[in-house]
C-alpha cells in the first residue's frame, strides 16, 4: 500500500507545483488545493501504514490493537478543513481581484509593481534653479 501512496504523492505534488507556477489565477489556486492534498498524503504516509484497521477501540476492549495510527489521521482531518478554508479564502481573493481589475492573468496584475516607465529621478537631483 505504501508504494501506491508514495507514487500518488509524487505525481500529485509535481502536478500541483506545475499548476501553481501557472499565470492563470484559477489554475494557481487549484494547484494550491492539490498541494494541500499532496501534503495530507505525506502526513498520512509518515505515520506508516502498518495496519489498516480503523483506529476505533472495539466495544468491550480498553485499548487499540493492530489498528491504524490515529495521530496522523487527526492531523490530516483538521488539515483538510483548514486547507479548504484557505482554498476558499484564495478563491475569494481571486474573485475580488478579478472583479476589481477585470483580469485573471497574473502577468497583467501589476497594480502594486507597475511596469517600469521613465528612469527614476529623485527630487534632490533636479536641476538647481535657485542661485546661491
Amino acid at each position: 500500500m505504501m508504494p501506491a501512496l508514495v507514487c500518488a504523492f509524487w505525481i500529485s505534488l509535481a502536478a500541483s507545483l506545475y499548476l501553481v507556477l501557472s499565470r492563470d489565477t484559477l489554475r494557481c489556486v487549484i494547484g494550491l488545493g492539490l498541494m494541500g492534498n499532496a501534503v495530507n498524503l505525506l502526513l498520512l504516509a509518515s505515520g506508516r501504514l502498518q495496519y489498516t484497521q480503523p483506529a476505533v477501540v472495539p466495544p468491550g476492549e480498553s485499548a487499540l490493537s493492530l489498528a491504524a495510527n490515529p495521530l496522523p489521521q487527526a492531523l490530516v482531518l483538521t488539515a483538510i478543513v483548514i486547507g479548504f478554508a484557505l482554498l476558499c479564502f484564495s478563491l475569494v481573493v481571486v474573485m475580488a481581484i478579478a472583479e476589481r481589475s477585470g483580469k485573471d492573468d497574473l502577468l497583467l496584475l501589476r497594480h502594486t509593481e507597475p511596469e517600469d516607465t521613465a528612469p527614476v529621478v529623485p527630487s534632490f537631483l533636479e536641476k538647481e534653479k535657485e542661485t546661491p
Binding site: 500500500m1 501506491a4 498524503l41 498520512l44 489498516t52 489498528a67
Partner: peptide, 11 residues
Amino acid sequence: LLFLFAGAPDV
C-alpha cells in the same frame, strides 16, 4: 478512497 483503504474512515 486511499484514506478509507488505509484505515482512516473519519479522514
